[in-house]
């Protein structure tokens, strides 16, 4: 697949402090790319540079082959942008707000009206299309923001923190919309977030940024394997009866590094998967294993691990 957004050693400094530091980002056509990082890591600044709204101090950004700094209009024509905490003209209705956007894009009103209705249906705001935006909830505004992206029929959608500050139901709607526009309209999506669970659910690939540096890029599994391979496996075990002898015999199994117990549950850290040997030891002690879980690494753990190292 072709790379549609590519940054090369992208750097931005404000008054000498580097907010984005030699960042290399690569988003491929048709994928959903999650751009992860804590607040203040440089996500929004990077996005603004990708859109040509801010000039990089050094380095370059290419979007579909266009240099975002020199040809910002070309980039803005094909890229839809949902800013963080998007706002609308409160005195105008949802429909009027979208009309303003299509006009700014130079679309003739006749064509635009059909498209606007289509988009409003898609984001579920058709019934309130003629309501002033001031009466909208945060979730509705965010969906209208998605509408503002869709209405320009972009090739790329750049969404900055699309689910921040929205209730779970609203979040779900937004995420579904993102997946839908990616699958059905083949729009490449770059979305930034600090909410990892959601990103993990919908993203094909992720990039992790901290202090302006991209520290990992790839699918969630790839990144997980890379960082976790030198680590141990974690087993969470529940037994019918936990005796000190059982704990002692488990500690003696080869490869077990550490055991922590509480009630009739215990956690075993080991260098490989020792579930078989441990269950045998439990049965031999006269108790029965009720539950054995291996812990999969979630993106959250990967992420926290990264920041600890970074």
């Amino acid at each position: 697949m072709e790379a549609v957004i590519e940054t090369n050693e992208l750097t931005k400094s404000y008054n000498g402090t580097k907010v984005v530091d030699r960042l290399n980002l690569c988003v491929k056509e048709g994928e959903i790319f999650g751009f992860l990082g804590p607040n203040g890591a440089g996500k929004t600044t990077t996005i603004l540079m990708v859109l040509g709204l801010t000039e990089p101090t050094s380095g370059e950004v290419k979007v579909y082959g266009y240099d975002a700094t020199r040809q910002p209009l070309k980039v803005k024509r094909i890229a839809g942008y949902l800013p963080e905490n998007v706002g609308f003209y409160e005195d105008l209705t949802a429909r009027e707000n979208l009309t303003y956007i299509t006009r700014l894009n130079g679309v003739k009103d006749k064509q635009a009206f059909a498209k606007i209705d289509e988009v409003l249906t898609e984001v579920g705001l058709l019934e309130v299309a003629n309501l002033e935006v001031r009466k909208f909830s945060k979730g509705m505004k965010q969906r209208l923001g998605m509408g503002a992206v869709l209405v320009k029929e972009p090739k790329i959608a750049i969404l900055d923190e699309p689910t921040t500050g929205i209730d779970p139901k609203g979040t779900d709607q937004i995420l579904k919309l993102i997946v839908k526009m990616s699958r059905e309209q083949k729009i490449t999506v770059l979305l930034s977030s600090h909410l990892l669970y959601q990103v993990q659910r919908i993203c094909d690939r992720v990039g992790i940024i901290t202090k302006g540096r991209m520290i990992a890029q790839g699918s969630v599994d790839e990144i997980g394997n890379k960082i976790m391979e030198k680590e141990q496996t974690l087993l969470e075990i529940q037994v019918s009866k936990l005796t000190p002898t059982l704990l002692g015999s488990i500690k003696e199994i080869e490869g077990v590094k550490d055991v922590e117990s509480s009630g009739n549950r215990f956690l075993v850290k080991c260098s490989q998967d020792l579930r078989e040997k441990i269950s045998r030891a439990i049965v031999e002690s006269g108790a029965l294993p009720l539950q054995i879980k291996t812990q999969n690494y979630t993106l959250e753990e990967i992420y926290i691990r990264y920041f600890r190292e970074g």
């Binding site: 209009l73 803005k76 942008y81 800013p83 700014l104 894009n105 923001g145 320009k152």
Partner: peptide, 8 residues
Amino acid sequence: SLVLSQPI
């Protein structure tokens, strides 16, 4: 930023 991200 919404307005400035349009092609103007």
